[in-house]
Design a protein around this nucleic acid. Structure first.
Lengths: 297, 297
DNA sequence: ACACCGGGACGAAAATATCTTTCATATGTG
DNA sequence: CACATATGAAAGATATTTTCGTCCCGGTGT
């Protein structure tokens, strides 16, 4: 703090009020300027001294005098404050993104709404995730001899994503999309192995079946599902709950459930990476290195 | 609207993201400037060109160049934007910096940080997405005879996700992971067809090659990438930019880029669904119906 | 009622600060 | 070693601040 001469810090936002307070002590032309500034901060922020002087039918000198009266060292600083104020106003008005996506929504609205929705989904998922269960799943996976991941349809991609990442840090992980192959492989599992089933509905037979087999062969089983009370939970040692967002015609459930599932999967992955940091760190670096060579400069 | 000449509206708030996106295409000194700006918007807003140049140990010219690259007409406007951003940060809406994920973070922290990060990524992506380009891509896809999607690695899953969804609304879409098959198929494309390449780095040869072939055969080409200036853009009629999050050892780039890519892909999908609502609506309902039968009660 | 005077509001233009452009030099790369 | 690119010094263009003289207003003396 340089201390000393600063009598008052330049006003943060209450500009309109300041204008009213000071108006009586202003001359006619200064009032015109102050009025313009208070009336349209955003607009004025876009103007130079000369511009604002012309707009208000006054001179540059008057504009500067007004800025001084309002507590700023000069017009430049008033303008900066104005820009800040404008930005705040802008962000203040939250667009009506609570409504569903309509067929005739302009593309910009679609983007805003989807982004908002997915953010919401993430928040819900994080809030609803049982960290104890997650921790247990992480421990199991970190020490597993082998990890199988089951998922079909949209969840199949999430399963692949998880397996891909686990592989990257040196674990033996496989994603099984084909139900037959999944069961065939599940038979191989035994204690110390981990099986993870991903299903939004919690009742996808193609995924439940391999999980059941794994469960019965003594593997530690994990279910990532939106229905923690669904059939899949029966064979799961640990259940990780994904959030269930409202769906609509233009926004299939698969969309937000995928977002939710991916967050859970990421958490699982990072947790495992932490526990196996000794090997995971170098492995990640190595795979990064290997990929770099596939890119042109 | 002054029509043609405005390629991108000056960024409103997602400046940190923009810096990260553009950083690779910056020179060393420009990066220093960009870093300073992203690191302390409020502080930089208080500086003149000369001041910022001195602070970063560069010249005025470099500062101006950086401002231009970030999408502003000059330093003055960047400074104004900075002031706005600073004000927003001050008043709650503070997308301030999170700490990185540490090896010894408790699992609950991991969840919170990951969720926050992905939310941030979504916000950045939405803010940085060029709706004009998106609209053009949507139009092309909605009227396409056939749509090919290319992606390998983590982006491959996103490609599959997109293809899966487009198929669901009755479009002819294929995701190609195998580079050879992708090229083989790209040869079949012609005017009226659409090819979409998904690559975070913008320089994945396996993905660029098929896009080039598609481009040369007259298909409308779209690139979804974090490097809008990368090699992939060369053969893309429309470039959709995904956000680039800072990465770290425990949070590989693949993670947040995937979040970003999926949002873009979702927007693309919903846009297409809107335009083809007549057929998309019933198709979605039908596929939903069909799936329900695979679930046990 | 009218001429005159002091005081402050006001703007034109000079002075200064700030921003932008140009151009020559430095730097790194094949 | 040639080439392309990055970079900063300084010239050039704008924007802001200051200076300074004019003008208007109300009061005052004749």
């Amino acid at each position: 703090m340089p201390a000393a001469a600063a009598p008052a810090p330049p006003a943060p936002a209450a500009l309109a009020a300041k204008v009213r307070t000071l108006a009586p002590s202003m001359t006619r032309s200064m009032q015109r300027v102050a009025e313009a500034v208070a009336g349209d901060p955003a607009g004025c922020a876009a103007l130079t001294v000369t511009g604002l002087a012309e707009l208000t039918g006054t001179s540059e000198a008057t504009v500067v005098r007004t800025a001084r009266l309002l507590g700023y060292p000069g017009y430049r600083d008033l303008r900066l404050a104005l820009a800040g104020l404008a930005a705040q106003q802008q962000s203040g008005r939250a667009p009506a993104i609570t409504t569903d996506i309509a067929v005739d929504d302009p593309i910009a609205d679609v983007v805003a709404k989807l982004a908002y929705d997915e953010q919401q989904t993430l928040a819900d998922t994080a809030a609803g995730l049982d960290t104890v269960q997650l921790g247990a799943a992480v421990s199991a996976a970190a020490g597993a001899r082998r990890i199988d991941v089951y998922g079909v349809g949209a969840s199949g991609l999430v399963a692949q994503d998880l397996a891909q990442k686990l592989l990257r840090i040196g674990l033996i992980a496989h994603a099984h999309g084909d139900p037959h192959l999944a069961v065939t492989n599940a038979v191989q599992l035994r204690g110390g192995d981990v099986a993870i089933a991903i299903t939004h509905s919690g009742s996808t037979g193609d995924v439940i079946e391999p999980l059941r087999v794994a469960f019965e062969h003594g593997a530690t089983t994990v279910a990532i599902t939106g229905r923690p009370d669904g059939p899949v939970a029966q064979y799961a040692d640990h259940v990780l709950t994904t959030s269930v967002a409202r769906e609509s015609e233009l926004r299939p459930a698969a969309m937000s459930s995928r977002t939710s599932q991916l967050l859970v999967v990421d958490c699982l992955f990072v947790g495992v990476a932490q526990r196996t940091y000794e090997t995971a760190g170098p492995a990640l670096a190595a795979s990064y290195e290997a990929l770099a060579h596939r890119h042109r400069r």
